[in-house]
Amino acid sequence: MAAQTPVVRLTDPYEALAALEEAVPGLAELRRAEPARVDWAAAEARLGALLPGDFKLLAEVYPDLHFGDYMSLHTPWPGEEEAWAGAAAEEEEDVADLIDLADLGAVLAAYPAPGGLLTWGSSNQGDTFLWTTEGTGPEAWKVTVASRSGDWWHYNAGAVQFTADLISGALEPWGLPRVRPEVVALGGEAQTGERAPQVDGG
Rank of each mutant, 00 (worst) to 15 (best):
P76V: 02
G26S: 08
P13E: 12
Y62R: 03
A110C: 06
R37D: 06
P112M: 12
A49G: 01
Y70H: 10
Y14A: 14
D94A: 07
L27T: 02
A16L: 03
V107R: 15
D100T: 07
G121Y: 02
L17T: 04
G121W: 02
P114K: 09
E90I: 09
D97Q: 13
L98M: 01
A96F: 02
A96S: 12
G121H: 02
L47N: 02
W77R: 14
F67Q: 02
P112D: 08
Y14R: 15
L58T: 05
E80Q: 14
A23Y: 03
P112L: 11
Y62Q: 01
L17M: 05
V24K: 03
A88Y: 03
A89G: 01
R46P: 01
Y62C: 04
D12S: 12
F67K: 02
E90M: 10
R46I: 04
H74K: 15
V107L: 15
H74I: 13
G115R: 06
L57G: 00
A85I: 12
L98A: 04
G105Y: 12
P78Q: 09
D103F: 04
A16W: 02
E22G: 13
T128F: 06
L108E: 05
W84L: 08
S123L: 03
G53D: 03
L47T: 04
L57T: 05
G116M: 03
L50S: 12
S72T: 15
H66N: 08
A42V: 10
Q125S: 15
A49W: 00
A59C: 13
E29D: 11
A96W: 04
L104I: 13
E91W: 09
P76C: 06
L101R: 06
P52W: 04
E34A: 10
S72F: 03
G121N: 10
G26Y: 08
V61A: 00
E91Y: 11
S123T: 06
E22S: 07
L73C: 03
D12G: 13
L104E: 11
G105V: 13
G116Y: 00
A45Q: 14
L117D: 09
A19V: 00
E60H: 00
Y111G: 02
E34M: 09
S72P: 09
L108F: 07
V38C: 04
E82C: 03
E34L: 08
A28S: 12
A16P: 00
D100W: 06
W120D: 06
L30C: 00
E44Q: 07
G53Q: 01
L30G: 02
V38Q: 01
L47R: 04
D100A: 15
H66C: 09
